[in-house]
Simulated assay, not measured.
Amino acid sequence: MQVPSSTVAGGGPSGKDIAGHEFLAFTLGSEEYGIDILKVQEIRGYEAVTRIANAPEFIKGVINLRGIIIPVVDMRIKFNLGTPVYDQFTVVIILNISGRVMGMVVDSVSDVTTLTPEQVKPAPEMGTAFGSDYLIGLGTIDERMLILVDIDKLMSSSDMGLIESLAS
């Protein structure tokens, strides 16, 4: 399924374009985020990674996933959200972004949620860990709020370009 290309001022898909899409909810610190479930290949428990010399701190290293070497990014380190704690809830979300497979370490995952157009609000222009360029909007479910992240844009941004060279 292809996401329509119309966008809002922030550059991401508009609320009506993403409505009805399913989002995987995950936490980083005290905030809850959501990414398009279609980008998720699998979810794995956190395991030790092989560090790469001279890689930025947010790139934890690489793992071998069934014969494929996958770079792993720790999102808490990437967005300065405090010292990461690796416990039984820590997971690696394996993503498939434009044919590239990569891992994203998050504190925990909770569920998959389908959002209607009324539940998706534009992201306010303010300082969040994820720059507004990477935000689709805010998904509201009762008293819960998901910060919806454009994971394609985030993982293909220039500072993440290093991942490409590590995985090659």
Rank of each mutant, 00 (worst) to 15 (best):
K39M: 05
K153D: 09
S158P: 12
I35F: 10
A48G: 08
M1W: 10
I18Q: 07
D150T: 06
S132Q: 13
G20A: 07
Y46F: 04
S132W: 06
E31W: 05
A167L: 08
I93D: 07
M75G: 11
I52T: 11
S6L: 13
L135K: 02
T50M: 07
I151M: 12
K153G: 15
L166T: 02
K39T: 08
S30W: 08
I77N: 00
F130W: 01
L95W: 14
E32Q: 13
D74H: 00
I18A: 06
A123P: 03
I52P: 03
N96G: 02
M104S: 11
G11D: 09
G61S: 05
L135N: 07
S168H: 05
P56N: 03
F89K: 13
D87C: 10
S14P: 08
T116F: 04
P13D: 14
L162Q: 11
S110V: 05
D152V: 14
V85Q: 14
M145K: 03
S5G: 07
R76M: 07
G20H: 03
L148Q: 06
Y33W: 10
S157P: 04
I97H: 05
L162Y: 06
G131E: 12
S158A: 14
I63T: 02
G127L: 09
F58H: 08
D142N: 12
G61A: 04
D17K: 12
F58Y: 06
F130A: 04
E32R: 09
F89G: 07
D133N: 12
R144Q: 00
A19P: 03
L146V: 12
L148R: 03
K121R: 14
F79S: 03
L146H: 09
L166N: 05
G127Q: 14
S30E: 12
D17S: 08
G131V: 07
S14D: 15
D150M: 10
S110R: 04
L65V: 05
Y86S: 10
R51K: 15
L162T: 07
T50K: 02
T7E: 11
S108D: 05
D87M: 03
G20Q: 04
S168W: 01
D17A: 11
E143P: 09
A9E: 14
I52K: 08
S6P: 11
I52S: 05
G67Q: 02
T27C: 15
G29S: 07
Y33S: 13
G161E: 10
R44C: 02
Y33N: 13
I35E: 14
A19D: 04
D87V: 10
G161M: 12
I93G: 11
D74A: 00
G137M: 03
G34K: 02
I63C: 02
G20V: 10
E42T: 10
L81N: 07
V8N: 12
V149D: 06
D87I: 06
I97E: 09
L28C: 12
L81R: 10
